[in-house]
Amino acid sequence: MEVSVLVPALLAEHTGGQRILQVVTDDVASVGNVLDILAGEHPVFDRRVRDETGSVRRYVNVYIDGDDIRSLDGLATPVLEGQELLIIQSVAGG
């Protein structure tokens, strides 16, 4: 199946300038699986989104069709055909 991943402008330099990435996964996949596939193609992008333990960084939010994955099942949240993954920085800093 195919899902869309929307990348924040600040990270587009690490995805070859692309803001929308199409990711082809197995029919049963999680948010973590999608990010793993992206990591293979764009490793620096992945390091900006997740730390080396695999956790999404504290001030990075990941939404699946508008729902924050932290309110769902985190990186184990299932992804369905045609869904959209939005990665966006949260309000942080000063």
């Binding site: 600040l10 990270l11 490793p43 620096v44 390091r47 900006r48 989104v49 730390d51 080396e52 333990t53 960084r57 001030y59 990075v60 920085q89 949260s90 942080a92 800093g93």
Partner: peptide, 29 residues
């Protein structure tokens, strides 16, 4: 604050910067 820490290097007095794909410093699993 958002994207975490990383180490970069420049060999042309800051005209360009590089970092390894897998990161210069990564805690072992």
């Amino acid at each position: 604050e958002h994207w975490g820490p990383t180490v970069l290097h420049s060999d042309d007095l800051a005209e360009t910067w590089s970092e390894p794909d897998d990161g210069a410093i990564r805690f072992p699993e």
